[in-house]
């Protein structure tokens, strides 16, 4: 009896052809989500399409002020090599264990689209778009929030594959933090990515694990941009930002969350954690800006 077919394309084109011919085939990259689903007997795909060997997905490159990260790049490679994106590095470092980071990919994180996916708040804070491809050289790019539309829900079409993510490179400090009840290898109870875009004079904040999908905090972002503007801090990083404003910002960030009680934590704690993470991330960023200025 035949239980499952495994397709092993060697190139992206071949993979897209196969996907077009068998749209129900389930892509597998690192397998760190897929294999769990299979082992738990939650999914029984008739066909699996291995995208882990496709060279086109395992690359990154600068594209004219933007950056393209291939779907097949593993967390381990990001941690080792992508020093120009500290928040992405930090997020990648928080993922699982060394074994998981050696296998797991950002493409897989996007494919799963869990609100607890650690790469996702970073992509959201980067205002990244997700690049999708189908056979015949057809690609489309969707802003992250149009791609991920609910808990574990994306708008990818059955004949498409994720090529990667692309974002405009911004200048400025930023960080990613994740709260969990264990000091490593833990699913986020709440996570936060905060980024300064000095050029655009904006601060972007994204939250994970506190809503059905990744959330941004636009109200808090605008508030902070205004505070920095009014204080003259955009031009002079040494201008102090009043603690009350930091607190207000943190409170507004937490307001953007829509947390629930579940087996990993309470809604009340999640909301509280967002406040603390926002406060810390902003304090760190402000001090990093100052440091950079004095150097």
């Amino acid at each position: 009896m035949r239980i499952m077919d495994v397709l092993l394309p060697r190139t992206l084109d071949e993979a897209l052809e196969m996907k077009a011919a068998a749209p129900a085939a389930m892509p597998i990259a690192g397998g760190t989500d897929v294999m769990v689903e299979l082992n738990f007997d939650r999914r029984r795909p008739a066909t699996i399409l291995d995208v882990s060997r496709l060279p086109e997905l395992r690359t990154w490159r600068k594209e004219d002020g933007a950056f393209f990260l291939g779907a097949g790049v593993t967390y381990a490679r990001i941690v080792n090599d992508l020093t120009m994106f500290p928040a992405l590095m930090q997020a990648s470092r928080t993922v699982g264990s060394p074994q998981i980071r050696n296998r797991g990919t950002v493409g897989g994180n996007l494919g799963t689209a869990s609100p607890a996916g650690d790469a996702l708040p970073v992509l959201a804070a980067y205002d990244a778009e997700v690049v999708l491809a189908r056979a015949g050289g057809v690609t489309r790019a969707l802003p992250w929030h149009q791609f991920m539309v609910g808990p574990k829900k994306t708008v990818i079409a059955p004949d498409e594959l994720i090529l990667g993510a692309r974002w405009k490179i911004a200048r400025g400090p930023g960080s990613f933090s994740k709260v969990g009840t264990r000091n490593a290898m833990v699913i986020a109870v709440a996570s936060l990515c905060l980024l300064f875009d000095e050029g655009g004079r904006t601060v972007r904040v994204a939250l994970g694990s506190v809503g059905p999908t990744i959330l941004r905090a636009p109200d808090a972002e605008q508030f902070l941009a205004r505070v920095l503007h009014d204080a003259g801090a955009w031009d002079n990083p040494r201008v102090p930002v009043p603690p009350a404003a930091i607190e207000e910002f943190a409170g507004r960030v937490a307001q953007a969350g829509r947390p629930i009680d579940d087996v990993r934590g309470t809604a009340a704690y999640r909301r509280h954690a967002c406040t603390v993470l926002a406060q810390r991330a902003l304090t760190w960023a402000l001090s990093d800006r100052k440091l950079k200025e004095t150097r």
Binding site: S175, G180, N183, A184, L277
Partner: peptide
């Protein structure tokens, strides 16, 4: 930083 409470989560600089 891995030795702060929260460990690999990068939530602390000793606050």
């Amino acid at each position: 930083p891995l030795t702060y409470p929260g460990g690999a989560g990068n939530v602390s600089r000793g606050e």
